[in-house]
Design a protein around this nucleic acid. Structure first.
Lengths: 339, 339
DNA sequence: ACCAGTCATGAATACGTATTCAAGGCAAAG
DNA sequence: CTTTGCCTTGAATACGTATTCATGACTGGT
């Protein structure tokens, strides 16, 4: 095999110039006379030279890599976001080092260390909760961090989410307008800010209207837990006439359980509303009424914040919430008079 | 901010030893006296030292990173595989640099170059077709490559797939045993070996039984194309009584189109069989009969091959096919006598 | 024609680690 | 007591690039 690694030195010799000149040709700011530049380029092409990114990163201190930590890849919302992230970052000349982590402090800690060892320029955490101890350490290290679809209690770190409380409120208003009276909530994991906020906005709105929720069960972002919650709800003495589910991923399990297992008609017997508006929510099999999380805008905002921090300027942490509309489909009864 | 990068030199000074000694403490093969080792470790912990992976990679020539190229992230089969890959590689001490690429030669070329620039130790390509020109170049470069869920015509590169032709055959036999007579195929993309092989195994088996397929349409691994194909099939003069769909992802679109849009009953009026057995195939809404691709075993095999190549031993390219069972659920009429 | 100022270029060095090499210490073998 | 050999350690160097600095050439203004 021809594992002859071609270095800038080889190109320099072939082109009759010095190594720094070769470096300048391939770097951004370097200034080289057109004559030498073409000579270098020709030699480089001839030899098949490409700069070694590792060596470059070592001297510049810029790895042009951002670390991505993801928890739930079975939820298509995140794969959608990942796809957009990847595309945008490639355009900006950044690479992605990806890690999957369970939502446990120890696991997250370990992964973050791994990323720091790799000198990543920034870290993006999707649906991962972070201990304050960790945010402190990262701030100390001076590495930019942005939380995607997770808030943080002390606001010492930038986070981008949808307007979760507002979203919960929109669902409550929609269900109230549809004359539902026994409204249950299978919530997102209450260990996550998103789950908490959606629940809060939802319950507050119900109570402002003089109604208390039929019941609230933590669905843990899990299909199995959500399905079990559905069974429990529907076999109670007075089942709900509407269920707001903390995300679409769980809502599909709820719908499956209602229709197929329990033989309940949706939306005739009961209304179901989700949260996320993943592509599958629009599929005919589910046709789910849900709150849209604008993945595209959320990704753009998260990257903009991350880049602002990376490019210095002492960018202070911000909490960004992006509003999204309620997408009305066929899984929930509509308010009377609504065309 | 305390962006004081702690280096091995700092630790060495603090512990009263030389930098190489520090290096030996943190490397695998180094031999250091217990006394000095503990002194070094204590100093390292006190200062918060961690070795700089970039610098280490530069000298060793081992980046401990493998490049992953993925095309279809909306197909959950790949996210499932990605999750397993990530877990296994982390256990083995490897990191993942991930890229998304369209299935176009130019895009793939660019991404591969990017990975090579980063000195990855190996490349894993999932559902990506590679030009022979590219395989040659990679072989020349001496970088191990494994194709996941894609074959390669000239067999000059290792590939791991399921037994696609055999899978197609199993579907054909099952549908024939179920007394279907007008059997259509909405195939996987015929630009991909998987799509071709499933089709070949399927059609060959039908013809061996004296039956020619009702029709064969390329579904391009796309929901939209598969849905359109379904419409076309069902509005023909003599619609099929069974459809074998090239993967689950498309099969869901076919089922949605049949049931909701066209009002056709499945499996009473028509049988549908998919390929992959993604988690969703087991959901009550779809309950899809399908051929299982054993993601776990495929991932393990792919990694084993990749590691064998990385660890030298002049491991020759292999073509590995992993068999998977037909999972019989409710979307297709079962053979009579089958319990 | 003279000077200030800009630009192109190479020599030297830095980045943070691993590895080679030589030297010294020490234990075991005779 | 000597010798052989292994183990530990530090000095020097390599990895492949970017950057600083000094030098020399060249430009333009007068």
């Amino acid at each position: 095999m021809g594992a002859n690694k071609i270095t800038a030195m080889d190109v320099a010799r072939a082109a009759g110039v010095s190594q720094p000149t070769v470096s300048r040709v391939f770097s951004a700011g370097g200034s080289v006379s057109p004559a030498l530049a073409t000579k270098v380029r020709e030699a480089a092409v001839k030899l098949g030279y490409r700069p070694n990114t590792l060596a470059r990163s070592l001297t510049t201190g810029q790895s042009k890599t951002i670390g991505l930590i993801v928890a739930y890849l079975d939820n298509p919302f995140y794969t959608e976001a990942l796809e957009r992230l990847s595309r945008s970052l490639k355009e900006m000349g950044y690479n992605i080092m990806i890690f999957m982590a369970a939502n446990e402090a120890r696991d997250v800690d370990e992964v973050v260390q791994s990323l720091l060892d790799h000198q990543v320029d920034g870290i993006l955490m999707a649906s991962i909760s972070m201990s304050s101890e960790l945010t402190d350490r990262l701030a100390d290290e001076g590495v930019p961090v942005v939380l995607f679809n997770r808030g943080h209690a002390t606001a010492a770190v930038t986070s981008v989410t949808s307007a979760n409380a507002l979203g919960g409120r929109k669902v409550a208003e929609f269900l109230l307008a549809g004359d539902h009276t026994r409204i249950a909530h299978i919530s997102g994991w209450q260990g996550a800010s998103t789950g908490q906020d959606r629940l809060a906005g939802f319950v507050d709105t119900l109570e402002a209207a003089g109604l208390s929720p039929h019941s609230v069960i933590d669905g843990m972002f899990s299909r199995a837990v959500a399905a079990e919650a559905t069974r429990k709800l529907m076999t109670s003495r007075t089942p709900p006439d509407a269920i707001f589910v903390g995300n679409d991923h769980m809502a599909f399990a709820v719908l499956d359980t209602l229709r197929v297992e329990l033989g309940v008609r949706v939306p005739d017997d009961i209304s179901v509303v989700g949260y996320d508006d993943v592509a599958m929510a629009g599929w005919a099999a589910y046709d789910l009424t849900t709150v849209r999380q604008p993945a595209n805008r959320m990704v753009q905002a998260a990257l903009a914040e991350l880049m602002a921090q990376i490019n210095g300027e002492d960018h202070p942490p911000r909490t960004i919430e992006i509003d999204g509309p309620l997408i009305i489909r066929g899984s929930a009864r509509r308010p009377a008079g609504d065309i």
